[in-house]
Amino acid sequence: MMKHLSTIACAALVSLAVTAPAKADLQDILDAGTVRIGVPADVPPFGFLDGSNQQVGLDIEVAKLIAEALGVDLELTTVTSANRISYLATNRIDLTVAAMGATPERALQIDFSSPYSALSIGLFGPEDSELSSLADLGDQTIGVARGTTQDIELTERAPDANIQRYDDDATAASAYLSGQVELLATANIIANDLSKRDPDNALAPIEIFRYSPTHVGVPKGNPDLLRWVDTFVFYNLNNGRLSEMTEEWLGQPLPERFPSM
C-alpha cells in the first residue's frame, strides 16, 4: 500500500513540477560546487551498510567517481525505491545512482543515462527442484521484491504465477528461507551470497531472465547534464573502469558488448 500511495503522490507532484522553477542543469551544479546524488542504503551490493555501518556499494563508488569527474563536492542522499523518482522530480537531488533499471513508464517522469552497470536477474529455487523453466511452474509460489526489474520481468513472463511481493530483497529472501514461498526471483549475486552463507539451503538458478542494466537517473529538462552523464559513462566503459567496479561489487565484469543508449 505504501508504494502505491507514494506512486500516486509522486505522479501528482510530477504533474505539478511542470510549472516548477528551472532545475539544476550542468552549469548550476558547477556553480554550486556540489553535486547532490541519491544512492540506496538497502539494495546490496549497490548500496548497503558495511560492518561499521557506513554506506558502501557500487552505486556509492560510481557517485564518487561522478563528483570527481565533475570536480565538485559530493553530497550523498539516501533514497528508497519508493521515493527516488520524487526526489529527482522535485529537485532535491541532481542525479540518482540507485540500481535503477530503465522502463518506458519511468522514462515519462525522469531521464535515464546510458547504463553504467548491470546485474543478472532470474528465478532461483532449491538445488533438488525439478523445475527447469518458468513454463512448468504449476502452482508454486514465488517471492520477489516489489517494483524491482525482476518483479516486472517475472510478471511479464509468468502472468498467471502465484507471486508474493515483498518490500525488499532481504524480506523476499527471508520468505524463501522460512518456507513462506517455494521459489525466489532475485539478482544472481544475492542468490550466490545466500548460498555461500548457508550451503545446506543453496539456491540454484531455474531460469535466468536477463542481464538487467542499471542507469543514472536525471531530472527532466536538463539536456546538458544528461549529455554529460552519458559521456561520463561512455568514457568509463571504454577505459574499463566501470567493468572493474562491477566485478569488485557484483562478482563478474561487464560483458564485451555492453548496450548503450
Binding site: 505504501m2 542504503a41 538497502d42 539494495v43 539516501t78 525488499d168 532481504a170 524480506t171 527471508s174 545466500l194
Partner: peptide
Amino acid sequence: VIGFVELSRAGQMLNNATFAP
C-alpha cells in the same frame, strides 16, 4: 518514506545488509 532514518528504517537497512531478519 521521506528518508528519515529512525528505528524502523535503520532496522530495514540492517536487514538488507545482514539478511538476518
